[in-house]
Design a protein around this nucleic acid. Sequence first.
DNA 1: CTGAAAGCGCTTACAG
DNA 2: CTGAAAGCGCTTACAG
Lengths: 342, 342
Amino acid sequence: METLPQIANSIREVAALAQTSVSTVSRVLNQSGYVRAEVRERIERVITATGFVPSAVAKGLQRRQSSLVGVVIPRIDSYSISAMVAGISTVLEAAGYSLLLAHTDNQVERELKALQLFKEQRVNGVLLLAAELGEQHRQAFSLLKLPLVVLGQDASGLGISCVLQDECAASTTLTQALLARGHRRIGYIGVNDRDIQVGGERKRGYQTALSAAGIAADSTLITAGGFDFASAALAVDQLMALPQPPTALLAATDRLAIGAISRLAEKGLHVPDNISVVGMGDIDIAAMMQPRLSTVHYDYQASGSRAAHLLLAQLKQEITATSKAVMPFTIKMRDSTRQLAP
Amino acid sequence: METLPQIANSIREVAALAQTSVSTVSRVLNQSGYVRAEVRERIERVITATGFVPSAVAKGLQRRQSSLVGVVIPRIDSYSISAMVAGISTVLEAAGYSLLLAHTDNQVERELKALQLFKEQRVNGVLLLAAELGEQHRQAFSLLKLPLVVLGQDASGLGISCVLQDECAASTTLTQALLARGHRRIGYIGVNDRDIQVGGERKRGYQTALSAAGIAADSTLITAGGFDFASAALAVDQLMALPQPPTALLAATDRLAIGAISRLAEKGLHVPDNISVVGMGDIDIAAMMQPRLSTVHYDYQASGSRAAHLLLAQLKQEITATSKAVMPFTIKMRDSTRQLAP
DNA sequence: CTGAAAGCGCTTACAG
DNA sequence: CTGAAAGCGCTTACAG
């Protein structure tokens, strides 16, 4: 056999080198059909000698199967999103899919463009980590005609499977933990309601717990802003300037809680001695901070893999009904909260 | 015109509906060549009516151009990596490329598999965020034959362009800041040397500063482990059990610093009153912690976009020489360090 | 067990 | 300005 480790760029060149047909090469490449051992060996030798790598593009064109899944994320520099993507990635890669990732910087426009791009790339399915779901999404989804699973927002009303955290119950329980510690005036540091889950539901849970405890609603105790530290600082300024300031703060996310604690420190207020603070999400650092942050734990990685599994089921056409998975939570009361003296 | 908003799955069907040829449809799709306004309009109407989306797969097969860039990351749930990917993504998407993401969970084997997969998908280039570079990588790179840029490790010796932080200088400067505050016994919480940049270079910088200050090397002050909180706790236990314990701790990463501070607190040691601690990396939370963490700031997002630009230049074949970009750093002395009483 | 041929959905000279 | 035809690199019946 000639030692020509030249490069083969196509199955056809491999076939020529191995003195056989493309059909046969295709068979050994896909381990399908019968191939005489001798021929198979000859082909395999050529493949390793040339370092030939078959084109998934050509294969995909034929099979109408790209083995690609598009993942849309609003931002990547977020603990919860990273964790979800890790979960997604693990499941999907194990199933033989590759991830096409589009980050949209929270711009709906870029989100829609990403969806378009995914269609062009003929992805087999789409996973959308959503912060907001508006009319534009509704339209885009109906045009998508592709297996789709939404993470983080409730899309079941649109006939789309989704994976959610049990936001309202979580914040109710968390608020109750604060109430149980004697707090009656609890400030709420929230985010915009357009994010129905993190904005709306978490706030609703807080309100539910208060009214169940017979505490009159006080809108001055409720703030809303972005996810950034500056928003947290603003909220703290506002809340602590109240005639009757809160004895505890519930922040819609751990980041906001951390920002709040930092701002409180700047004001000379110490957590938990002067004021209790809780967050939501249980980012990895929450348990390491000083004081260790009380919060609610979500298993974001499991949420990601759950969503991936839902998509996989759709891809295998095992599933037609739209399902809505609500993930469980755990309350983690640590050191940023304390019992109020009676 | 018939109102048949049926679906067109190929340029051929569009052509039939618009009563023209595929060549012409292709021309309007790509805005190439001349098309009579009337015909163009007819085609465009069919496209919008059918919601036709051309196949990037077929196009890629023809043009031998996938518009895909493969990105390999060891983990996704890391601040620095997320930030780099954000930088990469922004630049590459603006240039019309999509990201194919593979996370490898720090397993070389999966890294090599990802590279193989990228070749199959006929990506136009590869960006590798590397924690370690071994013999297997050397081999894989030589077989890759694809534009490649490495982030986080020095691959210039392999003839591969890369983007690095100025690790050694950064940790030297940081150590000097500690020395300037009167610390003589500085413990080092490091990671495995196989990670040449974060493991080796950061340690080397620390050692350089000490020896330049005329302080005898003391190997008992140097620990090595993983990137996790448990490793930090272990290192603290070890360092603080020394007959003459350190007055300051330099952790190779902010996470390790946070883990160390937490462990110190468990031991009843307060930062910075009882001991000073510095980290490296300046994760977003560093400036928000109590105490605010002293550290060195790297612009990870800029590093990512720098790497993306290097790759883009290769893709345009503007560049042939291998370049090595060393990114700048800034020392951020905050509240986790204090002047030692003389 | 193996090969010739059609076809996946595009692009691109090449004629007209 | 427009269309027929070849070809990108595979897969898949269909014959043999």
